[in-house]
Amino acid sequence: MSKEQSEPELHDTLEQAQSKQDARMGGGVDDRFNSKLRQAFGSTPFILTKFDKFMNWVRGNSMFMLLFGIACCSIEMMHTYATKHDLDRFGAGVPRASPRQADVIIVPGTIVSKFGPRLKRVYDQMPEPKFVVSMGSCTISGGPFQEGYNVVKGAEEIIPCDIHVPGCPPRPEALIYGVLKLQEGIRAGESAPVTVKPYELEQFGDLDDDALVRKLASEIDEDDLVMRYNWADSP
C-alpha cells in the first residue's frame, strides 16, 4: 500500500473517529494514548498510524484482568473465568490481584457510597491504557437498588466505562460478548473518553463551604480526600 493511496482514506477514518468522539464527549480530543513522539511530529505520519494499528491490535488481543469482586455479578464473573465458559480463550483470563498489573477492571456489582472513593482509587492505581467493563444493571444505573439511600446510580458516576453489559446478573455468555465487543472496539482504536465524572475525589479543603462542610469540619482534615455525593442531582 503506497502512502499516496492510503492517506486520504486514513484521514477520513481519523476524522470520522474524531467526530464520533467529539459527539460523545462534547469537544476535546481523547489523547489517552498520545505520545510525546506524536506531538513532536505534529500530525500523524504513516509509520505511527501503522504502529497505532499494531498497538491497538496488541491491546485488543491480550488483557490482564483485575481480580475484583463486588456483588452478585462477581459470581457470574467467576463462572466466566472458569471451566465452562473460559474467558481466557480470548486472551482475557489472567487475573492479577494488584491493580498495577491489570488492564481491564470488570466492575461486577452495586457501588455504594462507602465504596465509591475506593473504586475511584483502585481505578486510579491501574496503569494506562486501562479499560472498564461495567457488568450488570447496578453498575449501569443502580439497577434494582437505584432508589436506595446509599446506592450510587451507576459506576459511570465515578469512573469512565468502556462497555456496559446489561443483565441482573448478565449470563457468562453475555459477559464474554461484552469483553469481545470491548476488544473489537480497542482494535478499532476506540476508547472511552476520559471526562470529569459527577463524583470525584477531592481534598476536603477544596469543597465549597456549605452547611454540611462546616458541620464535618471538626471530623475531617483539610487535606483528606473525600467524595461528595449530591443525591438530589443523581439521575
Binding site: 482509587r121 454540611l212 462542610v213 464535618l216
Partner: peptide, 16 residues
C-alpha cells in the same frame, strides 16, 4: 436513613 424524618436527597461526604 430508616428513621422517619430522613431526607434521602441531602448531600453526603465520604472520606477516603
Amino acid at each position: 436513613p430508616l428513621s422517619n424524618d430522613y431526607n434521602q436527597d441531602q448531600p453526603q461526604i465520604v472520606p477516603l
